[in-house]
């Protein structure tokens, strides 16, 4: 089932949240990159938060795609945060000689949201923002073929 694994992309306010919960083959990784970029375009989201806390390994391929996503998102005026990288994965990445260029990494989703909000100024004023009001917050699943 190469390339068939569906990773959900959720839109919360002006942030796309991408929880990666399975080991992905290369096709799935490339497909995910394409989908994130088209969702950025479609929704005008300003932030991308990629949760890799369940990923047991990041190799040079996945590492490069994460950097590419961040670079292309930047062109579309959006910032990318990778959250939850396991310590063993982080150490291995350094030994491999890979720096995730242009990608900020933080411990968890809360910190990721805080970073997007405070450092990168993704504002609270959007009516469907998850940051400001609470009641108005909702997640829209933007999974489409």
């Amino acid at each position: 089932m190469d390339g068939q694994t569906r990773i959900p992309i959720l839109k919360v306010g002006r942030v796309l949240i991408v929880p990666i919960q399975v080991d992905m083959d290369d096709q799935t990784v490339i497909h995910l990159q394409d989908r994130i970029l088209s969702e950025l375009e479609r929704t005008g989201a300003r932030g991308v938060l990629i949760d890799i806390s369940l990923l047991e390994m990041v190799d040079s391929f996945i590492g490069r795609v994460l950097s590419d996503i961040a670079a292309m998102a930047r062109i579309m005026d959006a910032r990318t945060v990778v959250v939850g990288m396991q310590p063993a994965v982080a150490i291995t990445l350094v030994e491999l000689g890979l720096e995730l260029r242009g990608v900020d990494t933080v411990l968890n989703v809360d910190e990721g949201i805080r970073l997007l909000r405070s450092e990168f100024g993704i504002d609270d004023d959007e009516e469907d923002s998850p940051f400001g009001g609470g009641a108005g917050a909702f997640a829209e699943q933007v999974n489409r073929p």
Binding site: E56, M57, V58, D59, F61, Q86, V89, T92, E95, L96
Partner: peptide
């Protein structure tokens, strides 16, 4: 993790 990563590469 190191061994899985080497295998992947």
């Amino acid at each position: 993790t190191r061994l899985a990563t080497v295998t992947s590469e």
